[in-house]
């Protein structure tokens, strides 16, 4: 399997000279491609017989805004043991109208991640395309290269607000008609903003601010587990 992957890494390195992001990530090869080069790169990935990624398995948006942020610091021994877990801010605790200040990072916030499959070579590839602008994330559409990208891009636009340049029909797909906001962004509250019910007086469905209280039962914790620091598998430490 790993031989399979290193041979793909070699082929990709030959096809994309100057791209130093090609690496093996857990069990498949990952490559980062800038939005400006995505279309030509995608065409090459599909049409080159040495690559032949004829199928797009999956395309999704990712919001890296709070990557690596924990609600509960485990670095220091806190005196305020209980409140440190309930006072923090995260999507699960956001309520209606309360904003959330996102941490400052240099990393691009939005990325469009594709999983490609080559049936000829029986190998998968992950293509990450990060949008340059966090405020107005734009990524080229690959609908002309893989037809099934159509709905995946609509979904990513709907949930993350990533715009796909060149998409013919970039409508919302999963959320309600007339929905505002992009629900899978990290600053969108988990409980949502509005709830709906049937109003018998008005004779129609009405939207109102949510009434449920946000709650988080288990705080988000990042443990620097010694088993994972060196990249060793857990077995080697247990032995």
């Amino acid at each position: 399997m790993s031989q399979h992957l290193t041979s793909l890494v070699d082929r990709l390195t030959a096809k994309f000279p100057g791209n130093d992001t090609i690496k093996v990530s857990v069990d498949l090869v990952e490559i980062h491609i800038a939005p400006e080069e995505l279309l030509s790169a995608a065409t090459l990935l599909r049409d080159d017989p040495e690559l032949a990624f004829v199928q797009l398995s999956d395309l999704c948006g990712v919001d890296y805004a709070t990557y690596g942020e924990a609600e509960w610091s485990t670095e220091t021994n806190s005196q305020a043991s209980f409140s440190r877990a309930v006072d923090s801010k995260s999507i699960g605790r956001l309520s209606f109208g309360s904003g959330m200040s996102l941490p400052e990072t240099s990393r691009p916030r939005f990325a469009s991640v594709m999983h490609l499959l080559s049936l000829d070579h029986n190998v998968r590839l992950r293509v990450v395309c990060s949008a340059n602008d966090d405020e107005l994330p734009v990524v080229p559409s690959v609908t002309n290269i893989w037809a099934c990208a159509d709905w995946y891009e609509r979904e990513s636009f709907d949930l993350f607000g990533i715009l796909y340049d060149g998409h013919n029909d970039l409508r919302r797909i999963l959320t309600d008609y007339g929905f505002t906001g992009h629900p899978f962004r990290k600053d969108f509250p988990l409980i949502g903003n509005v709830e709906m019910r049937y109003d018998p007086v008005k004779g129609r469905v009405v939207y109102e601010p949510v009434t449920i209280e946000p709650r988080v039962l288990v705080p988000r914790v990042i443990r620097d587990d010694s088993r994972y620091i060196s990249g060793d598998s857990p077995e080697s430490d247990n032995a």
Partner: peptide, 27 residues
């Protein structure tokens, strides 16, 4: 451990894949 994984199984309906991104947290 922090990292990204894509696991696919042959679901009765087709390929069911889970793309998981972890930043080292318990969620």
């Amino acid at each position: 451990p922090p990292g990204e994984a894509y696991a696919a199984v042959e679901h009765p309906k087709g390929e069911f894949g889970c793309y998981l991104i972890s930043d080292g947290a318990n969620k």
